[in-house]
Nucleic acid binder design. Structure first.
Lengths: 231, 231
DNA sequence: CAATATTGAGAGCAGTGCTCTCGTTTAGTA
DNA sequence: TACTAAACGAGAGCACTGCTCTCAATATTG
C-alpha cells in the first residue's frame, strides 16, 4: 500500500509542481495559471501533471491551503515573539505580520481573499488552515478579556449574541462577551478590508503612505476592541 | 460621420450584448463569461460581437463601469430621500443601500471589489463611475464637518495629512480635517471589508444574522467618524 | 438609383483543460 | 537476481476558448 520511497519522490514532484505554479501565479494571477504552461516550464507534458492533481481546481486548492498556512505561520511567529502580557503590542505585531505577508504575496492574498473561484466550494479540510491567522488575533482578544473582566451593556450583548454564530465564535474566544467579539470581528473585517483595497488598487489617489495609514488603523482597531484599557 | 439611426440601433445591440453577458455573469462569475456563449445565447456568431467590443476585456470593462454606476445611483437615490440635516440617517441609508445592492448583484460586486483582472489596468474614464458611491458617504461626512466645526488634535491632523493623498481626498471632502477624513476612509474600508467577507463566504460559521450585524456596524462606523455628535 | 458603410456568417489559428492509450521506468518481492 | 505490478510520462485527440480574416448581405447616404 504505502511505499516510503515512492511517497517521498511523489511528494517532491507535487512540491515542484506547486512551486512552478506559484511562480506562474506571481505573474498573471489565478486566471492566468495554465497547467500546460506549468508543464512546459518543467519540460514535461501536461498530461503528466494529471498524475498528481485531478484537475486545475485541485491544484488551485492546494495553493490556497498553502497560502492560508503560510499567512498563518507568519502571523503566529511574529506574534509569539511579543511579551504575553503586552496585548496591544501583540495586536500590532499580528496586524503588521498580516500586512507584510499580503504585500509580499499579493497574488496569493488575492487567491484567498479575492473573488472566490466560480462554482468552487472550498473543501472542508481547508478551514483549519483558513482560521489560522484569524485564530491569532482572536486569541489576543480572548487573553485580554480573560485577565481583565469587562463591563458590558447587557442589551448590547444580547443583540450581538443574536447576530453571531456562537458555536463558531465561542470556540475561538470562549472568554469574550458577545458584544466585544462582534467588535473584534468588525476590526478583523476592517484590517482585511483595508488590505484588499490597498492591494486591489481602490486606494489609488486616496492614500499616499500606506504604512502610516495602516499604523493609524492598527491603533484605532486595538482601541475599538478595547485592548489593554482597564474598564 | 454620425448617423442618428445607426447610432441608436448600435447602442441597442451593445445593450443587448451587455444584458446577456450580465445574465451569464450571474451564473459563474467573470471567469466563466464566454463571448462564444453570449453569442450562442443571442443566436449569433461570436465574430459578430467583435463589431461592438474589441475583445473580452473591453466587454468586461463596460460591465464594470455599468456596475459602478448602478451601485452609485442606488446609493444616491436612497440617500437623497433623507432629510439633509439628519446626518446619521443619511449615513445609515447610504450604507444600507450599498449592502442591498451588493446582495442583489453579488457577481457584479465581485467584478468591482474582488480580485482585479490580471494584467488589466482600469481605463481612466472608469474612475468617475467608481467614485460615485464613495462620493455619497464622503459628502455626508463633509456636510457634517461643514456645519459643526470639530476640535481635532493637531498632531493627529498632521500625521493623517501625511498619510493621505490630499489632492484626491480634499476634492471630495474639502471641509473635513485630515484626521477625520482618515477615519472616514477607514469606515469605508470597513463597510466594504464586511461586505466582501460576507459575500465571499469568509463569515461562514461566524455570523448568523448578517442584517443585524451590519446594523451594528453602521452604528459603530457612524460613531467612529463622529457623525452628528456635537463636539 | 448607385455608391458606400455597417453588419453577420463561416472558416480557421493558436491556445486551453482534460482523457485515453501505450511504452517505459521503477520499487518491492520471490 | 530475476520478476511482477504499480507508477509514470509522452503523445494523440476531443471539445472548448478568444480572436482574425474574408466574403456576402444589408442598410444609409449621396
Amino acid at each position: 500500500m504505502e511505499s516510503p520511497k515512492r511517497a517521498a519522490t511523489r511528494a517532491a514532484s507535487v512540491e515542484r509542481i506547486k512551486a512552478t505554479a506559484r511562480a506562474q501565479l506571481a505573474c498573471g494571477g489565478a486566471a492566468a495559471l495554465s497547467l500546460r504552461e506549468v508543464a512546459r516550464e518543467m519540460d514535461q507534458t501536461s498530461s503528466a501533471l494529471y498524475r498528481y492533481f485531478a484537475n486545475r481546481d485541485e491544484l488551485l486548492t492546494a495553493l490556497i491551503v498553502d497560502a492560508y498556512n503560510d499567512l498563518g505561520v507568519c502571523t503566529e511567529t511574529a506574534e509569539r515573539k511579543i511579551d504575553r502580557g503586552d496585548l496591544r503590542s501583540r495586536w500590532r505585531a499580528a496586524c503588521r505580520a498580516i500586512r507584510q505577508w499580503a504585500h509580499a504575496h499579493p497574488h496569493e492574498y488575492a487567491l484567498i481573499f479575492g473573488t472566490p473561484i466560480p462554482g468552487y466550494e472550498a473543501p472542508a479540510f481547508t478551514v483549519a488552515a483558513a482560521t489560522r491567522a484569524t485564530g491569532v488575533i482572536a486569541r489576543i482578544l480572548n487573553d485580554d478579556c480573560a485577565q481583565t473582566t469587562r463591563k458590558t451593556n447587557e442589551r448590547d450583548d444580547d443583540e450581538a449574541a443574536r447576530a453571531l454564530e456562537m458555536s463558531g465564535v465561542q470556540v475561538l474566544m470562549p472568554d469574550v462577551p458577545a458584544s466585544v467579539a462582534l467588535r473584534g470581528l468588525f476590526a478583523w473585517t476592517q484590517i482585511f478590508g483595508f488590505l484588499s483595497f490597498e492591494l486591489f488598487g481602490h486606494l489609488e489617489g486616496s492614500i499616499r503612505r500606506g504604512d502610516d495609514a495602516f499604523e493609524k488603523l492598527i491603533e484605532q482597531t486595538s482601541h475599538q476592541v478595547g485592548l489593554g484599557v482597564e474598564q
